[in-house]
């Protein structure tokens, strides 16, 4: 069961990565990141079956961080949208120095 879980986790993570790479919609990319976090959580839970409860506690922390991140990230997206009227990353290059 653990090996299968790890395999699912790897596949989900890869899908998340490919999503980040191919999509340009900031919200979709955000969701891809959430998917990657979920994949990692799956791995944690799988390992917690092997090594004890610490894995599950880490999952809780990851979820907390993900929630915080989603709140801040979405606030940023809203803020950007107000200025640029778009969430397409191609049109957002504020990082350029």
């Amino acid at each position: 069961m653990i090996n299968e879980a790890l395999f699912f986790s790897a596949v989900l993570f890869t899908i998340g990565v490919v999503g980040v790479l191919t999509r340009r919609n900031a919200i979709i990319i955000f969701m891809c990141v959430e998917l990657m976090l979920n994949a990692v959580n799956l791995t944690f839970v799988a390992f917690s079956k092997l090594y004890g409860a610490a894995g599950q506690i880490f999952v809780i922390f990851v979820m907390t961080v993900a929630a915080a991140e989603a709140a801040v990230g979405l606030a940023i997206i809203i803020s950007i949208f107000r200025h640029r009227e778009t969430v397409n990353l191609q049109n957002i290059n504020l990082l350029k120095g």
Binding site: V18, L21, R24, N88
Partner: peptide
Amino acid sequence: IADMRGTWGKLIAAGIG
């Protein structure tokens, strides 16, 4: 507007995946 990358982008992303 184009939300997805082009074919090449998808192929390379798939390769990386």
